[in-house]
Design a protein around this nucleic acid. Structure first.
Lengths: 132, 132
DNA sequence: TGGCACACGTTATAGCATAACGCAATTGAT
DNA sequence: ATCAATTGCGTTATGCTATAACGTGTGCCA
């Protein structure tokens, strides 16, 4: 699955996320794109929906905000659950995968015959720099 | 840490959550408690804050909703991360713990010197009954 | 008895997300 | 070429989630 051609709006939203060091809320994206003609939240949400579908972007549920995928080139994002550490102080986000965690969660859901569709793993806390 | 004495509002909110088979949003709680004198969201949120602090209630980040802790008697909720399966169809939630998952996530954060404060693990999908 | 801590009540506001409508551009089969 | 289907886009309006800021009342105890 290669990169799909992004539309103008999708490209603009994706650029905002890629350039940000931190997660960005939909309304912040909207504000940053007013100069490019964005006027309503739906323009942002529609672009985000597609970017999420393409796997280029992740939604952080505990923040109601979005980040560009850290590994868009690799297809690893689609081969298991993505987990995040999120610094409560500086906002920095690290994205990672752990096959053992995936495996344990899968074992649990299998045993219960629960069919997983989307898994969220978010660790809020303090990054090394901020905890020091 | 034993059960603290709940205030009237805290008790009312907790009862709503305990009686519900599904996660409940703060505003739904508010509606259910109007007959008991609740008039504003803050009355609910303040009670929820305390209940979360006591470990009697969990917040589901991916739903912006709340559930009563499934194991309030045991202190297991405080001895590791709580994980949830959430059925997208019927709304049923199962709460569980997995020490191996805890261990792996801890290994990751330790390696990065990330200091975890709160970890969210939510698996959205279809429960056995709804997937059949 | 004065100060503190805490729960509570109210109004207002901020922040996040989607419904519903219609138009424009693209594609692709006939 | 042309029609139909799909997809993206723009706009207005609305609904849901959460907190700020203010003041009141109560109990405790130094």
């Amino acid at each position: 699955m290669n990169l799909p051609q992004l539309t103008k709006n999708q490209g603009l939203v994706f650029d905002v996320l890629r350039r940000s060091e931190q997660p960005v809320s939909a309304y912040t994206i909207l504000d940053k794109l007013r100069d490019h003609g964005f006027r309503a939240p739906l323009q942002v949400y529609r672009a985000l929906d597609k970017l999420l579908e393409f796997g280029l972007v992740h939604r952080l549920e505990s923040l109601n905000a979005f980040v560009a995928c850290a590994h868009p080139a690799e297809s690893c994002c689609r081969h298991g659950t993505v987990a995040f550490t999120i610094c409560n102080s500086c906002g920095h986000v690290d994205e990672f995968h752990d096959h053992e965690v995936d495996h344990r969660l899968e074992a649990f859901t299998k045993a219960r015959r629960f069919k997983p569709e989307k898994t969220t793993i978010e660790i809020r806390g303090l990054c090394a720099a901020c905890a020091a």
